[in-house]
Structures are given as structure tokens and as C-alpha cells.
Design a protein around this nucleic acid. Structure first.
Lengths: 134, 134
DNA sequence: CAGAATCCCAAACGATACTG
DNA sequence: CAGTATCGTTTGGGATTCTG
């Protein structure tokens, strides 16, 4: 008699594959590299901040989107949210040990973009001229 | 008579600041870390590929979004597009020297997410339970 | 095969008002 | 102060069709 062979493997078709649309890691990736996620992580790398401070630091973000972004990052374990039970409310946000490396990598991207800016601008100009010429 | 003092400085209020909603670097950042941008860069890090190959590799992307993503990255100088004048058309995409470091950094993020996956899942579960308990 | 163009819907987003 | 709720608009993005 052969012992039950079915339902042993079968799970995780290709281990962990971000290129698979059903991979749960995709959502995490998207939270981190979302429009506001990258900026929030950058701010928090500079230290603990309150909601209003983050909102002021990240130009253009609405309250709604900031709250939403922070919640996603908190749920993923990237951000720690600490509420002080006072009136008026006081809530501090900071990076967790899990989140810090991500914030650092993202910040690397900031620097890379800044250094690449002249080349990017040249490339864009060349591209636009190439297009205009047809 | 004092020589014209106005309009001397004033430009580039804070040099290069991604946190400024008007900073042109923001657009570049968003192209790179867009939903499909991160995946396309990851694929191209593995080598030169044709349009259809990339489309097959990146699960869930539509033709339209792939074309759009590739165009943005090409315009920013991250991706090189080479057309071979044959019928049927043959177009190769590859990373430029400018784009490769970005693709490498993005790929670092893949790995980080993969390694963090268990912690993330635990954090999500804890978060959901905390929420459910009220 | 690579992509441009069109249509159209769902989701994302911002502004505003409200609450603990 | 730190959100939540609601609403109207914009945008993203998929499906389809067409062309070189």
C-alpha cells in the first residue's frame, strides 16, 4: 500500500516569484514602491515623525492617501505606529527593523536618480527630438 | 544705481528634492518604481529581450501597458530599443549603462521582499487580528 | 511581430466635511 | 491632531481592432 501521495507538494507553484501575478509579494512590493510609499519611507528614515509632520514633508500628499499608505506599510510590518493616549491625539510613526533596510534601499534610489538627472534629461531631449523629426 | 538684484537666484528652490511635488525627478522615480516598471527592469537585467518575451515574462501585463512602460523607460535613458528592419518586425530591448544600476537596485528589493516574506506575513496576521479584536 | 489607436470601465485620487 | 466618510473627478489600464 502506497502512502498518500497527493496534496503533498502542489503548493507554491514556483516558490516565490514576483513575476507571477498571483504572488503575494507583489502587493508588498507595490506598497513599498507606490507613489507615496517611497517618499514616506524616505522621510521615516530620518527619524520618528508624527502624522502631520510626514504630511508636511511629503509635498502633494493628501490626508487620505497618507493614512492609506501608512496603514499598508504598518500592516506589512514596515512601519511602527505608536499612539499616545492624550488629547489632542499624538501618533508617532517610525521604521521597524524589518522596514529600515527597505527604506535605505529606496533612499539609494533617490541618490541614484539625483546623480543620473543630467543624463536622464539629455536622454529625454534626444528622444523628443528623434520623435519630432518624423 | 543698484544693479538688478531680482531673478538672480530664485531658481531651483531646494536644488533637487524629490519631496517637492514639482521636482522633475519624481516622474523618473515613478517610471522606475511603477507597477510594471519594476518588473520590466528585473526582466531586462537578465539580458536583451524582445517585446513578446518581456510580455510573457511579466505575468499580467497588457500590451498597452508594456509598450507605455517601455517607452517611458526608453525616454528616460534607462532602456535601449533596437529595431531590426525585417519583416515581421524584430525589436530588442536591453538596459543601458544608465539603467543597469537601477535594475540592480530593484532586483535587490525583490530579494529583500522574498527574505522578509515570513516576517511580513506574520505582521499582517497580527495586524488583522488586532483589528478584528475591536 | 510590434505597436498605435480607440473605447470604456474600475480603481485611484483629491477635496471637503465631519468626529473622537 | 489624527484620522474617517463621502463624493466627484481623473487616471490607469484591459480588451479590441487596425496597421506597417
Amino acid at each position: 500500500m502506497r502512502s498518500a501521495p497527493a496534496a503533498v507538494a502542489e503548493v507554491t507553484p514556483e516558490r516565490f516569484n514576483l513575476f507571477d501575478p498571483n504572488c503575494p509579494g507583489r502587493a508588498v512590493m507595490e506598497h513599498i514602491v507606490s507613489r507615496w510609499g517611497v517618499l514616506v519611507l524616505g522621510v521615516l528614515l530620518r527619524g520618528t515623525h508624527r502624522f502631520g509632520e510626514i504630511r508636511a514633508a511629503v509635498g502633494g500628499v493628501s490626508e487620505k492617501m497618507l493614512a492609506q499608505t501608512l496603514q499598508a506599510l504598518e500592516r506589512d510590518g514596515m512601519v511602527l505606529r505608536e499612539v499616545r493616549p492624550v488629547i489632542p491625539p499624538h501618533v508617532d510613526y517610525s521604521l521597524t527593523d524589518l522596514g529600515r533596510p527597505f527604506a535605505e534601499t529606496i533612499t539609494t534610489l533617490y541618490t541614484m536618480i539625483e546623480r543620473a538627472a543630467p543624463d536622464v534629461q539629455a536622454a529625454q531631449q534626444a528622444y523628443d527630438e528623434r520623435k519630432a523629426a518624423r
